[in-house]
Design a protein around this nucleic acid. Sequence first.
DNA 1: ACAAAATTGAAACGTTCGTTTCATTATATA
DNA 2: TATATAATGAAACGAACGTTTCAATTTTGT
Lengths: 180, 180
Amino acid sequence: MTRAYKKSASMRELLLDTAEALFAERGFHGASVRDITETANVRNASINYHFESKENLFLAVIERRIEPLAALRRERLLETKPDPAEPETSVRHIVRSFAEPMLDFAAHGGPGWKNYCVLIAHLAVQKQWGENTVTRKYDDHAHLFLEALQSTFPDADSYRVHCCFQFLLSTTLYAVCNNE
Amino acid sequence: MTRAYKKSASMRELLLDTAEALFAERGFHGASVRDITETANVRNASINYHFESKENLFLAVIERRIEPLAALRRERLLETKPDPAEPETSVRHIVRSFAEPMLDFAAHGGPGWKNYCVLIAHLAVQKQWGENTVTRKYDDHAHLFLEALQSTFPDADSYRVHCCFQFLLSTTLYAVCNNE
DNA sequence: ACAAAATTGAAACGTTCGTTTCATTATATA
DNA sequence: TATATAATGAAACGAACGTTTCAATTTTGT
């Protein structure tokens, strides 16, 4: 019994963790199935057995931490209603509700979360993961923040609001990626 | 004579342009040699003939626009000396000297420059291109801006200055990537 | 404890990868 | 124009890719 895993659920998580790290380091195409399985010390067939395909594994990696992150962001955001009368405090609240959960997870959520955030940064510049369940979930909870921003500035051009949100997203991701 | 190219130098630039676009869209590992040559309507052997290897082609793509960008940034930066007595105007000058050349190239330098900037954004999150001629050139002209920031705030912690520069770099890259 | 289901070990599958080869054609030099 | 050099066309190379197969083994439910 010198194996690094024990049984099914552990195997799934071992593969998810390893893939998460390698996808974050080298991107989807840069990390091969054999890279992942050899790093995890398992047979290369196990990825196809547990996830059907490499792409499904990738989506599962993304999927795994979407809801915890989105939930925490939602929870923080809904603590206070957007108030056009106090735009500064409102914006500050929106920004912190969006950025801090990811920064906190990356800093204190363990190495998996750190890798995950870097992986999300990859997706932000590489658009090749078109419409699917994963990106739709992200867009859903991003929409909450867009609405909050728009409610804070009811007269603002929606394109401009969208740009502001993109700036918030970009800055958050890079803040996560660039603190060694 | 229905070919898309004429002779040697044109072939090199055709390959550079096509590779630039596909590397920006899909990353280094996501764009294959055959993807590039078929998009350019040339034989797949031509990349190895003109650039020896796929990696050399990639480095050549990066290299091609480094100096024009760095030169313009340097030129703008050196128009004014950093002045600790007027930190606000100094910082504004440093930020604009760094960001605007890239934004201008991306906006008005043709599609090649746009692709190039997206490609640089890839490199910023994907660190797998360790010490080489290319990254060293980038670090060199980045150092100029770090020094300018440090001169503006002589008493500031150098780590903090470094973080500010990273923020500047990140924001610039994302501004380039996210305006459709 | 036994039958059924799930998982692993080991090997091979066909495809695509980056690269190499070499004969042929085009270009440049004298 | 003759000759050397450079570039292209077409095909093939071995290696690595993601995936599939199937017998052996372990786990699960009764």
